[in-house]
Nucleic acid binder design. Structure first.
Lengths: 234, 234
DNA sequence: GCTTGTACGCTAGTATACAAGTTCGTTGAC
DNA sequence: GTCAACGAACTTGTATACTAGCGTACAAGC
């Protein structure tokens, strides 16, 4: 088990174990099916099993780990049906909120959206995918905030994690970033024009094209997937 | 602390503590603000603190408990903004799925829906609110299954818990059950007629009227609520 | 060679002991 | 009488020991 987790330096605080493991799973450092051991994790993080157990339990609730009593803990396979359901939920919620955002937008908020676009443009020019997706998330979160439902973003983040896990299996090309950026520009433009129908259509097209990319990634990484509707008898 | 939890008989299994506490909170047996103690809970359930801690952590993640380190564990107040957001999410998702259900319904599924209505009608006649809401949930779940997104129901259940928690603060009158039942009949009728627009409108009206009732309950039980947008620094 | 019984090592689940911190009552000095 | 300081009793957080069950490797018997 490679586990290039930096458990070194400063003793991990309360939720460090959770955050580190979650990040490793989302990034693909921990591959689906890979086995973990609470004891070994505790040793690696320099803590006892108790905080490790807390983290493992939460990750299990999130669907990232599968704990089999008396057997072991494993990185959960990616279920294609779960990914599709996540897409459905995200699309449904964000298409609704973008309508509200288009109806409620005020000039100050419009400027904030422009700043997000500018940050994305810089990231595209630098071909910096990490910076791009940081600005991407900030923009989506801001749109939902403008819609008046800031807490809904937390829910989106949860379901989006399933999608990001797939996305992280492949590297984004500069062309792809540019395409996404163009889609973002249309969304913002329609929102600024206070055109709910246009904004919703642009958002739906955007999310669909991201999902299509995810589908292509899945097709070329089938070893990590499990499309069986296995009841995860938690 | 009353806590009429039946910790008697058969040793509690894996998630008994969680299920029991969750049920007690949703039913209002444990009131918002009430304090709990892991030690006392462990004694009441006849187990050690470890499984109790697991349950408490999960309930904390769910937003039902608020754990303050070195101080105590308390039943979380009901946040009106969270309730409103839950309503928004539920309405958005169920209005989308009912459209899909209306488009996809087949005769076998239609019969199942009729059976749900029949069960509800019996419950209304007997003024049995528990039986009514059991059939209610089964029907909503079935509609989402018909829409082809069965897993989405799990998400709805999560957000619905916030709404049910408020609903359980008051008893339903027979009149109110009858009104809800009528709304259900319209939803099913429009779905069977393969009328997505009509079904969605009926579903939205239904969910809104339930939410209005929740708002009225909240107005008369303000002591349990907290509308401050407190950041629940998990 | 194949099957089956068995022992060992691993796992997570649980129980318990200890540590760190907060709250609140009490007691002492002023 | 007032207030401050101390301490007892409580809380959750953490560490560790033990339990029960599963998987596997290995050896004995067919």
């Amino acid at each position: 088990m490679p586990l290039p987790l930096s458990a070194t330096a400063r003793g991990p605080r309360q939720h460090d174990v959770y955050d580190t493991l979650r990040h490793a799973i989302l990034n693909g450092d921990l591959r689906p099916g890979e086995g973990l051991s609470e004891t070994k994790l505790a040793a690696q993080f320099g803590v006892s099993r108790t905080p490790v157990r807390d983290a493992v339990r939460r990750l299990s609730d999130d669907g990232f780990l599968r704990v089999i009593p008396q057997v072991g803990t494993f990185v959960a396979p990616i279920q294609l049906t779960a990914v599709a359901d996540s897409q459905f939920v995200r699309e449904t919620l964000e298409c609704r909120t973008i309508r509200l955002a288009a109806e409620r937008l005020d000039p100050t908020q419009a400027d904030a959206l422009d700043r997000h676009l500018a940050a994305q443009e810089r990231a595209v020019a630098a071909n910096d995918a990490t910076a791009f997706f940081t600005a991407d998330e900030a923009m989506h979160a801001d749109l939902i905030r403008i819609a008046g439902r800031p807490a809904v973003w937390n829910l989106i983040l949860d379901v989006k994690a399933q999608l990001d896990r797939v996305r992280c299996l492949s590297l984004e090309s500069a062309d792809w970033l540019a395409m996404i950026f163009d889609q973002h520009r249309v969304i913002i433009e329609r929102t600024r024009a206070r055109d709910p129908d246009g904004a919703e259509a642009a958002m739906r097209a955007h999310l669909r094209s991201v999902f299509d990319a995810i589908d292509r990634i899945a097709a070329t990484n089938q070893e990590y997937f499990e499309d069986s509707p296995t009841d995860p008898a938690r």
